[in-house]
Design a protein around this nucleic acid. Structure first.
Lengths: 140, 140
DNA sequence: TATGAAAGACTAACTAA
DNA sequence: TTAGTTAGTCTTTCATA
């Protein structure tokens, strides 16, 4: 991981469809070098995946979920990852155990999701925050 | 937004480099239809961007930041988005005001980031959770 | 929806460090 | 032996009918 890698990642993070030739021009190297590096970064797992970020609805939110002590959080995470409108499920350290990042049509849809979570026996409590604004960092 | 759109988004979310021809095959339509739909979804803002998810370090974490009442959270967000190792900055509703999603080399690097946040006059407190596992949802 | 031109990505052989 | 370059070929995208 050197400065060139970081520059390439930065460009892809902003637009993963930027052609290798154009990246090469921007970072002042050849297309082949960019391609080799992207391949290496991908196989090394630095690039986890090429993906899209979406906004299907008008609301993004994070729902923090506390589960009972004896519950397998991995199983709960798998379950919740299958729910409509859930973008990510994080298992986290700290007070809560699982965080859902959701993209929903409206507040009603978010509320339904919260209800669905609360209805599970394994769930002790939830805490929801609406994401009012998302800003892309310059990392890495 | 119909079922076909949702299927296309689902495929792109898992691998945004999937060729239109291959998507078309999977959803049983023509390449042109897929292309038109992706273009429409992009211009409508449903697809916010084509991007990469990365893991440059070994630690991912979310740092929840409380700022003083009188502080402009947008300005703070802009500032923090410039910090190394920060993937996203969210302005959120609820107890805390800003959430940083970070990707760092090790716990020491996470700690430095927390310290940096706490050293700001505008920051009242922080709460950190390590992200132990990330699971991709099937949304939308 | 079908087709061909243009753009981009990939292969493989080569060069330099 | 690894990283980088380049020319030729193949694939994908895109515009047009």
């Amino acid at each position: 991981m050197d400065e060139l890698d970081r520059q390439i990642l930065d460009i892809l993070r902003r637009d993963a469809r930027t052609p290798y030739t154009e990246i090469a021009e921007q970072v002042e190297t050849s297309e082949g070098t960019v391609r080799n590096r992207v391949e290496r970064l991908t196989s090394d797992g630095v690039i986890e995946r090429f993906t899209i970020s979406t906004r299907t609805g008008n609301i993004k939110a994070m729902i923090e979920v506390s589960v009972k002590v004896e519950v397998d959080t991995t199983r709960i995470s798998e379950l919740m990852a299958e729910w409509e409108e859930v973008d990510f499920v994080w298992q986290v350290s700290g007070e809560e155990d699982v965080v859902l990042v959701v993209d929903a049509a409206d507040t009603r849809a978010v509320n339904e999701l919260i209800t669905k979570a609360r209805e599970l026996d394994e769930v002790k409590s939830t805490k929801t925050r609406l994401i009012l604004d998302e800003r892309l960092g310059r990392s890495p």
